[in-house]
Design a protein around this nucleic acid. Sequence first.
DNA 1: TAGATTGTTAATCGATTAACAATC
DNA 2: TAGATTGTTAATCGATTAACAATC
Lengths: 235, 235
Amino acid sequence: MTPSDMMNPSETTTDTEAVQPKQKTCSDVSPAVINRLPRYFRYLREFLRQDILRISSGELSAMMNVTASQIRQDLNCFGGFGQQGYGYNVKYLYGKISDILGVSANFHAIVVGAGNLGRAITGSNMFEHRNIDLIGIFDVSPAVIGQTISGLSVQSTDRLEDFAKDHKIDIAILTVPKEEARSAAARLSAIGVKGIWNFASTELDLQSCGVLVENAHMGDSLMKLMYEINRSEQG
Amino acid sequence: MTPSDMMNPSETTTDTEAVQPKQKTCSDVSPAVINRLPRYFRYLREFLRQDILRISSGELSAMMNVTASQIRQDLNCFGGFGQQGYGYNVKYLYGKISDILGVSANFHAIVVGAGNLGRAITGSNMFEHRNIDLIGIFDVSPAVIGQTISGLSVQSTDRLEDFAKDHKIDIAILTVPKEEARSAAARLSAIGVKGIWNFASTELDLQSCGVLVENAHMGDSLMKLMYEINRSEQG
DNA sequence: TAGATTGTTAATCGATTAACAATC
DNA sequence: TAGATTGTTAATCGATTAACAATC
């Protein structure tokens, strides 16, 4: 087998129970690594688009401004995805990282809060790229309920519980005002949502309920930029 | 002086040249600390709203789920803002953190890209909270130019250079499609913008031009949530 | 004064980098 | 085979935590 023929380096190992698969279970991957995975995903997607078949940690390192060592270390938390002397097969690695990031899981999501931000998110192409089905959008305002946003009719938030009976909801995207965020989150937790993507600039503190929360505090990001500008101007 | 009288602990030191001020210049604060500053800012703002005058690192620690040690360590990168036996004066500390984060600098910002996300951001209360003046919004689409969004009339992107002659622009908020992001960023760099808040899901790589870039890759945040859900289901 | 809590140093822990043997 | 590049271990670096003297 020449390197360029390689599609899946792992498949070269014999597939018996006795052979310890290269795939690690690595139950606790460090947060620092997880933070970097989406960025690898983005680069790989772009390589795929450009028909780049193969990439080495050295090449990727130059493009991404991280060390080659770190790239190899990161990827090895999940298994040996590369091949010595060759590098990484882009298509194969992209597939593996997609699996790790749950792109293959076909999650279902709803948007709660059909304000400007909720609409912007609903209308983005973010979901098709990640194999997420956006299956509902909810709001409390009678003026908004019934409107169609990106092909979805806005439902009353009162219907959440009923809706959950008929649909698996993996992710709730929370774009309600800060004041309503906590009570909305409690309801979402009650209907069995697995994760909340929180845009309300307040902490949710639901981890105890077994609901995963990812905070998208946009204002925090803005403040980091403000800090850097301020610092560059006055040391 | 009783603790509750204290407004500014630093001002109790005599103000001569000889006395080394408690305020540190600490030219290089670690990124980990900077990442936490906006969160402190949010909590302090909330305390202020609730008329809480005083907070100790221990109390804050319990609320924020970080160690008291870390809080004291973080704050001490910038100076001694507390008082032994008392804790931190909320108003004073909030002021100090506001200064550090550039809230006192009264930055001017423009939005480039008046799509759904640009509109959502323009309409948010994010800017008043941070003492930022939103002074312009730009788009290329003739259908959008001239529309009023949150009191601002959308201008043609062609007018950027002219606009920059008459206005100081500190921050450009980039919400154009991915494909146009790099060229837009180059123009913004050329007109002397100090920082770009980048919502396009592509890397900008302008650091060489002296323009600071803060990436707000929302999709990366979503993927971290996907990872956690995926992991919790089949970890 | 006694009690409380900071500021700060030292110890621990985790993450990154360097180096190189394994191997394609 | 020789060259290239991974996977992995060891060394370095940085960040967090623990502890306590300083002090309000």
